[in-house]
Simulated scan of single mutants.
Amino acid sequence: MPLPEHEWRRRAAAHAARVEQWVRPVQERRLRGEAHPVEDFLFTYYSQRPARLLRWSPGAGAVLAAVDRDALPEGCDWEAVPGGFRLAAPPEGIARTAAWVVELLERTASRPAQFGCFGLHEWAMVHRQPAEQVRHASWPLRLGADGTSEVVESLPVRCSHFDAFRFFTPEARPLNQLQPTRATQAELEQGGCLHANMDLYKWAYKVFPYVDAELVADCFDLARRVRELDMRASPYDLRALGYEPVAIETAAGRAEYVVQQRAFAAEAATLRERLLAQALTVLEVGRAAQSGCAPQSG
């Protein structure tokens, strides 16, 4: 059944208002030539531009009621169907990405979440590294360089995420119990990993506009909160920015970290399920277009 114009316009406006509160501060800092180690991360580490996050789409298969094409949300390829318009069939590149995302998410969800890493990946990224090469060199290390390295060498390093592991210093890499590669990513990712759960945002926007904008925003919201824990548990002292440290070098700090990690894992599991369902819909719509059969509208 087509989504009435007043309803999809309401959803689009609500999405823009929600996202604006995250995007505007980043854009204002860029104009001032400033950087924020926590809040800017999702717009520097990931390729999604702030302006694109503002865009709205109902996702694959949904039909929008509209008088004419010019009234529809911009940035999407629309096709006329009975009752309104829907997104045209996904291009081959999007379909390939959706298939890869489906496999990764299914395999991630199939294995038990692990909660023994304690966020040591950020510590391993500065282990035995010269001060001028530290990623966030403008912020002090809480325990100093030697104290940071002592923590890395005294606790088990159990990072399963390739895109975190690839930033480990050469001295830290042999300490990791796993040696992740891009080729083994789908074999190793698990739902307790902060970075795997942040990456739900990446997989959502890579399939946008064929997944709905609200899901992309939900994944972004999770990722920004995960990033906060990531940096609070890091070796950096960010108290000047209002972030109290989670001192994972202590037993109490590690326990606190695991409590929050488990909560994020539960939240991410729900988002992963939603994203998996929508990515499967993208594949279904693509197959239907290739066969000449019209998929059911959602």
Rank of each mutant, 00 (worst) to 15 (best):
C193L: 03
A172Q: 02
P112K: 07
L54V: 08
T184E: 10
C293L: 15
R224H: 12
T97S: 13
S160D: 09
W100P: 00
V63A: 04
L120T: 00
C76P: 03
E214D: 15
A95S: 13
T169G: 07
G83N: 09
E249F: 05
Q27D: 06
P4W: 04
E214A: 13
V282H: 01
V282K: 01
F43K: 01
Y46I: 11
W203F: 14
E273I: 04
L3Q: 08
E267N: 08
A251V: 14
Q21D: 12
V63W: 01
H195L: 10
D221S: 14
A95H: 04
G93I: 09
V152F: 00
L87E: 09
A279Q: 00
Q185D: 12
A65E: 15
G298Q: 10
P37V: 06
H36V: 02
E28F: 04
A251W: 08
F168D: 01
P37G: 08
Y257P: 04
E20H: 12
A263V: 06
A99P: 00
T148G: 03
A66S: 13
T97N: 12
Q133K: 15
S154D: 10
A252N: 05
R10H: 12
E244N: 03
S154M: 06
A265V: 04
D212H: 14
A233R: 01
D40Q: 10
W22Y: 15
T250K: 07
R135L: 14
A137Y: 07
V157L: 15
R239Q: 15
L241P: 01
S47F: 11
A289M: 05
G61E: 05
V211R: 02
A294E: 15
R225M: 10
A288Y: 04
A223D: 02
Y45D: 12
L271T: 03
R239T: 15
A12H: 09
T44F: 15
Y236F: 15
E150Q: 14
W22K: 11
R158H: 09
E284S: 12
M231N: 05
S47N: 11
M1G: 13
A99M: 02
E20N: 07
E187K: 13
R173E: 07
V63M: 04
R128P: 03
E284K: 13
E7L: 15
G286H: 14
A164W: 00
E189L: 11
A88D: 11
M1H: 14
W100G: 11
R239A: 11
V246Y: 00
A88N: 10
A99F: 01
S160C: 11
L175F: 03
P295R: 05
E284H: 15
S234V: 06
R49S: 15
P295A: 09
A294C: 11
A12L: 11
L53D: 00
E189M: 12
L104I: 11
R272H: 07
A277R: 12
V19D: 00
F264G: 02
H161G: 03
T44D: 14
P73C: 10
L238M: 09
C293S: 14
T169A: 08
L178Q: 07
A268N: 07
T184W: 02
V157T: 02
A240F: 06
G83R: 06
